[in-house]
Structures are given as structure tokens and as C-alpha cells.
Amino acid sequence: MESALAELLTSALVDIPQAADEAALEELRLKYLGKKGSLTAASAGMREVPGERKAAVGAALNETRLGIGAALEERKAALVAARDAREAEGVDLTLPGRPVAPGGLHPLTQVLDRAVGILRRMGFALATGPEVETEWHCFDALNTPGDHPARHPSDTFYFDSGRLLRTHTSSVQVRTMEGQAPPLRIIAPGSAFRRDEIDATHLSAFTQLEGLYVAEHVSLGQLKGTLEAFFRALFGEATELRFRPHFFPFTEPSYEVDVKLCPKGQAPRWVEILGCGMVDPAVFQAICEARGDEVYHPDKVTGFAFGMGLERLAMIQWGIPDIRHLIENDVRFLGQFA
């Protein structure tokens, strides 16, 4: 009996590793361990085994069953592993994926959002104002002389109503101060319009970002520190700035700010990027007159203001040589910034 069991085990241990697939393995399981299998048949022989040998034969039977079971498990694990491996067989993982429609924000929006994000972190709140403006909000309140060339119809778009398309977002300074008492710390992104022929560096409608901070004792040092922090956050910690004194009717002192560009393979150069200054007392006086109160009296508050062209920021940021790309919306262009 034991020898028959040993033979059975040997034969099973030869058959099982050769099972080609899980179905063949199942057949072998049935052949050896099934209800009608060899081992079951052998167990039936136990009845004839004499009592003193029952224990030994029983142990042999058990050992055979365990041996076959282990072989079946082992082969099954190997076959499952092979099946799992086959699942990924033949897949070329270098093939392109499912096509995805590209899409993306316009580069100007991206620049705007970065600038707005930085300035909001610095405590500025957004403000808006109309693009069709009164001459008072666009010029008079901003201390611009009555015969200033910027007011001329050759430079500024007018409507029959006498209103105009704002030539700068600085008019939002006026609008906000009219409606809100200090302290005021605002940024106003938006369109501005000048009667310029469109060429590689000019648009008749462009985008500005205006900033204004009015409170007691706002200083030039704060303007400088604020803009330095802003441009370092925008262009990197190593960004170099320089402030050149300039003239604007609505600020005094006034500055133009240049940023140093270091394009690869070219000599570094300074590029004008922003105009700024301390709010001229005449602007505060105009606001006081319009409001009919004294909360903006130049003896009580001071302020700084700045304005920059976003097209220029985008052109600097990405090395865009021609401003017209920004209004043509060619997908080959837009796709580069997605």
C-alpha cells in the first residue's frame, strides 16, 4: 500500500508541473484528489489495512495528499503569475496616449494671474472701473493740464457723448477714492486705449495693472520696497531693478522702473517696465472736492501709485518679439503657454 502511494505521489509530482494551463491543472487535481481520484480510491483501501498498520498507512496517505496539494498550489501560483504577466504582454508603453484636447489660458491671463496673486499676498485688494470714462476721471482729477497732448483727439478715442476710452487704468484710482475712504490698498487690472497704429510694439488697446496705496505716512521707501518684492516674486530672487526719476502729472516724485534682462547668449540690458510715484497732492485735492469731505486731504494722507503694461511683462517673461501675437490668438502660439 505504501509503495502504491509513493508511486502515486511520484507520478503526480511529474504530471503537475507539466500542466500547461489552469484547466489542465484542474483536471489533474480531479485525477488525484477528486472524489473519483486516485487518492480517494487509495483511501478506500484503508478498510483492508490491518489495525496495527492503519496508523502508518494513514500517515502515508496524509503525506501523499499534502504533497500533491502543495504541488498543485505551486503550479497554480506559477500559472496565475504567468497569466498576470501576459496581461501586459505586447503593450508598447511608448505609444502615444488617448488624445486630449489641449486648451489653455491666454498668456496675458497667466501673467495677470501671477501678478495679481503676488500683489494680493502683499495685501492689495482688486478694484475695477469703467473703460468708457469721463475726461474728469481720466485727466482732470489726475492733475493733467487742460491742453495736455494726451487729451488730444489724435491720441485718445472719444465718443459723441464727450466720454472717452480711458488711456490708463489710473482712472480706477480716482473712481475708488471717490467711493471708499482710506486706507486704500488696491490693484486694478484692465484695458487701456490709445490712438496708436498697431505695430510690433504698439496696440491701440492694451492691458495695464494699476496699483494704489493710500494711508497715513505712506512713503517712497515703501513704494520701492513693494515693487522690489513684487518683481523678485515675479521674475526671481536675483532680479535687478533700477528706479529712474521721471515725470507724470499725477505723481511726485515720479519714477520709471527698469528691470535687467539677462537673455542667454546676449549682453544684459535694462528694459523699462513700470511707471510709479507718490500721489501728487493735487490728485488728493481733486478727490476731496469730488467727495465733499476731507478724508483724502493731502495733509492727512499720502500714497503711492504704480502702473505697468501686462503685454510687456508677458513679452519679457516668454521672449515674445512681436506684441501682435497677443491679439492674433493663433493656436500654435496659444498652445506654447498651455
Partner: peptide, 22 residues
Amino acid sequence: IANIPSSMAGEFVAASAADALY
């Protein structure tokens, strides 16, 4: 202006309706 020290100090102001719309 190079001799004027930079400062970042500024008063806090609340967010506006324009912020929400943005």
C-alpha cells in the same frame, strides 16, 4: 532713490467684491 531704504510695510485692507468676481 538708491539711498532710500526699502520698506514693505503696509496696512491690511479687506478683500472687495472685485476680488470675488475675479
